[in-house]
Design a protein around this nucleic acid. Structure first.
Lengths: 252, 252
DNA sequence: AGGGAAAATATTGTTAACAATCCTGTCAAC
DNA sequence: GTTGACAGGATTGTTAACAATATTTTCCCT
C-alpha cells in the first residue's frame, strides 16, 4: 500500500518491511545535512526504489533520516525546485509523476544537450577519465549478464552522469542529473516492460568513439541512442494502470 | 554602499533612494507568493538592477515585499538552488558572483543547448510565435537606437528566453532561464565595457533563418552568436575591481 | 445495510520566540 | 597611532507551539 502505483509491471526493490529501509541511516551519530537528504532521495528515485507518485510524508522522513521537520521541509522544497518531487498544497510531497508532455520535454532536452556533451568529452577528456567511464560500462555489462536488473538500471544512469562529469562542466552535470533522474521516472511509467534500461551496446559504441577522439561520431551515436530510448516510450496520452485516477481526481 | 561591487564600470539603474525601489510593491493588498518573489529577483538580476555580490538581507526583503521571514527564506533557498544566489552560512544571502570557472561552464552549457533549441524552433514554431519574436527584436533595436542601455540589455535576454519558449518545451525554458540570468551576471563581471549586450544584428540573422525554416542555419548562427559573446569575456583568472577580495577572503 | 454528515484524528502550513553566530564600535595596551 | 580584545547590537538559524486544511472514523438516518 505504500507504493500505490506501477502495480504489477515490475517488482520493487527488496524491501522487507519499512518503506524507507534502503534510504535511511537512523543510528549514525552525525546529523545529516539537507543537501545529503536531497542526494539520497535523488538516488532512490534514480534507482527505482522510490516509484512515481509515492507520498513522502514529513513525519516519516523525519524518522527515516533522524532530523527535524524543518530540514525535511527544506529538502522537499529543493527537490520540488528540481521537479523530482511535486508539492501539493496542504496535501504533502509526492515523487513526481511526469505527464506525457513533461516526459517529452525531458527527453527532448536530453536530446538537445547530451550529443553536445558527448562531443565535448571526446574532445577533451583525459585518458584516466575515459578509463573510469569504461569501468562503469564494464560493471553495467556484468550486471546485465548476471541479470541484476536494478544494478543495471542504476549503472545505466550512472554512465550518463559520469559522461557529463567527464566534460568537466559542473553546470552540465547538475542539469543532466535532474534530467537523468526524471528520465528514470519516465521510463518506469511509459517504457515498455523489459526495455527499462539503456542497451549497454550503445554505450560501448559511444565509448569507442570517445577513445577515437571522434567528436562528430560521438555526437551522432549519442543522438541515436537517445532517439532509441524515446522510441520505446508510449506517450500516446492515456496513462498506464492506475496512475491517471490518482492524478486526475486530485484537486488542484 | 549598498552595491559594493562593480564600482565604476557602469552606472546603476535609476534608483533614487531605497535599494529595492524597483522591486517591491509594498502597498498592494494581495500577499505575494514565494514563486513570485523568486521571479522578481530573477528579473532584477537579469536586468542588472541587482549586481553580483549584493547582499540580500532577510529583513530588508521582508519589508520590500511585505511578507514574513519564512517566505523570504524559502525564496532565497530556491534562488540558491538555481545558483542565482549564494547562501553563506550565518552570513546571509548574496547575489551570485560567478567565478571564471563557473562562467565558463555556464557559457559552455548555453553553447551546448541553444543551437539545438534554435533548430527546434526553426522546425516547429508557429508563424505567430515567430512574429512575437520579431516584435521583441524590433523593440530591442529601438532601444539600441535611442541608447537606452538597460532596456537593450533586458530585451536582449528576453530574446533568448522567448526563443526557448518558442520551442514549446517547458524544461528547456526553465534551464535556459537560469543560464541566461547567470549570463547577465557573468557579462557584467567579465565583459568588456560597452559590449554588454548581444548585437541585435545576430538576432536578426537568426530570425531570418527561423523564418526560412532552415534548422541547420539557425543552429550555426546561434553557435556563432554565443561564440561571439564568449569571445568578449575576459576569464583570465584575476577578477576585476574589488570582487576578488570579497570572495577570496570569505570563509567557506 | 448503505449513504451521508459530523466529529476526531492526522498532516501540513505559519508564526513567534529563542539560540547561535557574526559584525561593529569602543576601549585599553603597546 | 595602531593593534588587539571585548562588549553590544544586529542578523541568521532553529525549535516548538499554534492554526488551518485533509483525511479518516463514527454515528445517525433512510
Amino acid at each position: 500500500m505504500y507504493f500505490p502505483v506501477l502495480t504489477g509491471s515490475f517488482e520493487m526493490a527488496p524491501m522487507t518491511d519499512g518503506p524507507e529501509r534502503e534510504i535511511d541511516d537512523p543510528a549514525s551519530g552525525e546529523e545529516i545535512t539537507e543537501a545529503e537528504i536531497v542526494e539520497r532521495i535523488f538516488e532512490a528515485v534514480m534507482e527505482r526504489r522510490l516509484a512515481a507518485g509515492t507520498k513522502l510524508s514529513e513525519s516519516e522522513l523525519c524518522k527515516a533520516f533522524g532530523v527535524g521537520r524543518m530540514r525535511i521541509r527544506r529538502a522537499l522544497l529543493l527537490l520540488a525546485a528540481r521537479e523530482v518531487v511535486e508539492l501539493r498544497s496542504n496535501r504533502g510531497a509526492y515523487v513526481a509523476c511526469p505527464s506525457p508532455a513533461q516526459a517529452r520535454d525531458v527527453i527532448e532536452a536530453r536530446a538537445a544537450l547530451e550529443p553536445a556533451v558527448a562531443r565535448l568529452v571526446a574532445e577533451r577528456a583525459s585518458p584516466e577519465t575515459l578509463a573510469a567511464l569504461a569501468a562503469v560500462l564494464e560493471e553495467e555489462a556484468a550486471a546485465h549478464a548476471r541479470g541484476s536488473r536494478h544494478e543495471a538500471i542504476r549503472l545505466s544512469g550512472q554512465f550518463h552522469l559520469r559522461l557529463a562529469e567527464a566534460s568537466g562542466n559542473a553546470t552540465l552535470v547538475r542539469i543532466l542529473k535532474d534530467l537523468v533522474t526524471r528520465s528514470s521516472l519516465i521510463v518506469a511509467i511509459y517504457g515498455a516492460a523489459g526495455l527499462e534500461t539503456c542497451r549497454d551496446h550503445d554505450h560501448a559504441t559511444l565509448l569507442a568513439a570517445l577513445h577515437a577522439r571522434d567528436g562528430a561520431e560521438a555526437e551522432r551515436v549519442m543522438a541515436a541512442h537517445l532517439a532509441d530510448i524515446f522510441a520505446t516510450l508510449d506517450l500516446s496520452g492515456r496513462m498506464p494502470a492506475g496512475l491517471d485516477l490518482a492524478q486526475l481526481l486530485a484537486r488542484p
